[in-house]
Design a protein around this nucleic acid. Structure first.
Lengths: 194, 194
DNA sequence: TCGAAAACCGTACTGGAGGTACTGTAAACC
DNA sequence: GGTTTACAGTACCTCCAGTACGGTTTTCGA
């Protein structure tokens, strides 16, 4: 389903693969929306867990808030790169840019999930600005969205160009953006002649 | 169609709006794929023209390759922001992340268009690196994809959050990324005590 | 002005997909 | 041992993409 797309995968295909019948399917899901809802739940939890794992590990590796985020983003990028055949496709992007019109509840839940992820990055960015003076005025909300956009955009671009390296690459670009903003500049001061 | 999505818009709706019949539609398009193909052509040309206009204007405003790109991206962001009701949705993102399975020809053409746009930005970045020493090692291909990903990601995020300001905001984030990379740092050198 | 091609209209149909309705039934559980 | 859970089976409905084909109008060049 992640490979072909949600709408492109018919229920008939699913039940054939799963070895059940239509009756069985509709016993568990009242319609295809409810299947999407279930997939969204599962995917959301998996991604939350992944973020907890990766940034937990990053926390072990660094106390500094800037290094913590930079390491976390790097680990996340590596995790995406290690996935065989590239990232299977972001459920949120897959569902939010779907042909199919989902009901208001589904849309609301997708929106909430995305907001939560943005807030997740934002909190880490807020911790950074509390310590590091940014090179330019910074809106952490926008910066958090930048990270999320890099991921979503990387998925889209990787899918469009059929190049699985784009996603991790763009996650590292987001990382470098943060780094450029906050990391102090190494200046070689040439001592003036007296 | 841009509002509802490609697959969510039935041919019956289209012909009702256009005031023609099914026969008329299928006289011009052999199937819905060919309609998508036509839309892709039209949208691609429109975007090409927009880029030419915007960066032509940017060229009038600045000779410096860095300022040229920064101004161009700002103008592009402003153009997107001015669109009433936000950007109608990127055709490429809409088609490449579609339920519908397009034929190989369609996929190839989408890929080519995206590559062309990436190259467009890359050429401008190459002109910059020829003049400005980057603060970090730079791969202009990746950086060009970063700009494109910001746009696509901004569209997705804007659509998901139902916030039309996200797209121009993220385009300016891409601009700032480029700026941070190349713009010389203003250093206040404190004269050492003798 | 005439004739042919282009640009449709009307109608009827096929097939696949989502979904409904209802009956039957094997296993699980209390 | 009776009820609930978790399906299977069958039949059917609707919507939509797409086909087939004959008839009609408009356009346009000779």
């Amino acid at each position: 389903m992640l490979a072909k797309g949600f709408g492109a995968t018919s229920i008939e295909e699913l039940i054939a693969e799963a070895g059940i019948t239509k009756s069985g399917f509709f016993y568990h899901f009242k319609d295809k929306n409810e299947l999407a809802s279930g997939l969204l739940d599962r995917h959301g939890e998996a991604l939350d867990q992944l973020l907890v794992d990766v940034f937990g590990r990053a926390g072990e590796l660094s106390d500094d808030p800037l290094q913590y985020l930079l390491v976390g983003l790097t680990l996340l990028a590596e995790h995406m790169a290690e996935m065989p055949g590239g990232h299977p496709g972001c459920m949120v992007a897959a569902l939010s840019y779907q042909d199919r019109l989902f009901d208001r509840d589904m849309r609301a839940r997708i929106t909430t999930m995305v907001r939560d992820w943005n807030d997740f990055f934002r909190r880490k960015l807020d911790a950074i600005v509390a310590v590091y003076p940014p090179r330019e005025p910074v809106d952490t909300a926008r910066l958090a969205r930048m990270i999320a956009c890099s991921i979503d955009g990387g998925i889209i671009m990787g899918k469009t160009l059929a190049d699985p390296t784009v996603l991790p690459e763009q996650m590292l670009m987001a990382r470098n953006h943060v780094k450029l903003l906050f990391q102090p500049v190494a200046v070689h001061v040439v001592r003036e002649a007296a």
